[in-house]
Design a protein around this nucleic acid. Sequence first.
DNA 1: GTGAAAGCGCTAACAA
DNA 2: TTGTTAGCGCTTTCAC
Lengths: 339, 339
Amino acid sequence: MTTIKDIAAYCNVAVSTVSRVLNNHPDVSADTREKVLDAVRSLHYVPNNAARDLVLPQSDMIGLVVRGAENPFFTPIIRAIGKSCEAKGYTMAMHQIPAGADEVGEGAKLAQSKRLKGLILLGGRYDYTQEDLKALGVPFVCCTYTNHFGDLDPSAFSSVSINDKAEATRAVNKLIEQGHTKIAILLDSKNDHSISERRYKGYREALEAASIAPDEGLVCETGSFTMAAAFKRTEQLLAERPDVTAIFAVADTMAIAAMKAIADAGRSIPDDISIIAIDGIEMSLYTTPTLTTLVQPQASIGEKAVEILVNVLDNGADCSHIRLETTLRPGGTVGHVHS
Amino acid sequence: MTTIKDIAAYCNVAVSTVSRVLNNHPDVSADTREKVLDAVRSLHYVPNNAARDLVLPQSDMIGLVVRGAENPFFTPIIRAIGKSCEAKGYTMAMHQIPAGADEVGEGAKLAQSKRLKGLILLGGRYDYTQEDLKALGVPFVCCTYTNHFGDLDPSAFSSVSINDKAEATRAVNKLIEQGHTKIAILLDSKNDHSISERRYKGYREALEAASIAPDEGLVCETGSFTMAAAFKRTEQLLAERPDVTAIFAVADTMAIAAMKAIADAGRSIPDDISIIAIDGIEMSLYTTPTLTTLVQPQASIGEKAVEILVNVLDNGADCSHIRLETTLRPGGTVGHVHS
DNA sequence: GTGAAAGCGCTAACAA
DNA sequence: TTGTTAGCGCTTTCAC
């Protein structure tokens, strides 16, 4: 393995000179610079990041901890975060963890072991406590969620998300407007302390405002965000409740699985069953009919997250919370009730 | 930041003792071990990987370079690779690069800067030259592809993939069996030196074997693997060639986009147009009708890749090439020709 | 069973 | 403009 020492020896200069060239310091003569650069190429030198990280007080890295990276909803957000980091002169280090894992613990480890400057947590829990964050030690922003169930002081963390409850209400209202009253909700769990719980609250509020009595038989918990679970649960719903005329799915993926179950059962969308969701993943543009959904501004979510963090890092700005709005993308899955 | 020095001071032992405890060396008294472990917890110690990597001759890391990670086809493979690495006592370091980027160059950098033991390249090019691999320096395995267009000596690299050409032939034969002769192919490019080119060859062979004259008007190049491009190109095909009765898409995502274009054009699947693809992503289970596709054994692909690499690493085994087979998953998108 | 000390590759004072 | 050197946190001989 080639090191700067080898380069230095090869060029008859000191290691510090090589280091200066490598880091684009100004105080090097053009001659020396060229000589070193040549040696770098011909000796196939590649910097050892471990050594660099070790000596540098901090890296220029922003850590991204993604919880459940198999979720296609995150893909465009991740891309946006990567691009924004680069544009601001930072490097993004992504770390994927399973859907159930502890993003704060992982983030803390990442932050220390890689000397991160800051952290973006994508798709985490809504219930951090002050205690949880003790270990973190660097500024961070919660991306796609905030801290509804924890006891965090809003001035101690940042977040970018939609208003899950309000958007859910808005989605369900679209169904109510069409005359639906037998409206099912398809969710992970009523009390997952995460988006399902928040969106369930919004669903209940919409029903209440329209004086529709809640109906436990229409609350379809799946126990996960997988399409397979959503499919099975929808089959069950259709079998048990022939009176249902509309479904609100808390995620596009679940809605797509539900649409399949509905089609398989020989019912038609939207004539027999209407369906609406929240997310706006690429795939939902290609269902037949096109899924009606509240599209989250995925790129903006990613960009804003980086913006907030960099502002804190570079300018010592205060923490902030951004609530973005969804855009209704009318598809063909919501229609008048026929019953 | 807590270091082993702090722990050592706190416990009144030497740093070497702390290091021994941290690395599970046997020569430490139970007492000392406990004391140190306690300190680790209460001082919130997290090892600094940079320092560890620096001093260790090699890390236990296997690098994974994913080219075009937005492709949902890769998701299960990545998961399998991660799990397998862990099971074999290795750590996976994933590095995502854009669809067009140079995976070998990136891999070489990664390998040297992180002192990787080996490398898995996911979704790379088929046309490496000996020269390209000079820089790499560690054993590697090509995952989902092999070296059809380059000049590599098969004994100098490993690969896990399907036989793209043969599987494409198989897919197209399924259409021919149903009486189709006006069979379009939906692909990135006829000469992308990658899966499109290989699968195009298979398509041509199937036609030839069935004495169907090739028809350039039915070769639909999209210039990318995006769904949007596949959708547009299918619209164009339907407009220009009302005689087409079947489509072979080189990827499930493209097939799903095509199905939407067909439905939007008021044609029915499979009555008017049949469609078959290769991949078997989760989403293709939830289209209506269910997509008929040749399912790649995604988990096995990932597992085999790790197995080969670890075998080379641990046992000095030779490079090897594994060709896996797909499984036909009959859906509802292929039917008899009606014309 | 434990400690002292060398050194991994690199950067950044400080000297020259 | 360049060289010398200390030290980042860690592991690992080599003594004791």
